[in-house]
Amino acid sequence: MVVAYVLVKANTGEADRLKRSIAELEGIDRVSIVAGDVDLIAKLSVDSPAEVKEIAADAIQGIDGVESTQTYIAME
């Protein structure tokens, strides 16, 4: 099991829509809209590091209104 946190910076004020779109993705445990220099943080649990890349780089970045993402894989 791999746990990762994906920090999402948006370029739209539609935080609600982004939150819903991210939450619908397979492997996402939880998404929060946050204050600060990123706009949302998603926690995901998947079986392999490759799936982290699929969700973070492909699926989340593919959502309209997502400017960039930063992914942190948990070590414990």
Binding site: T12, G13, E14, A15, I33, A35, D37
Partner: peptide, 14 residues
Amino acid sequence: IDEDYREGIYKQYA
């Protein structure tokens, strides 16, 4: 705030 689009987000959630 530092970017335009965040105005709505903070007005709604903060």
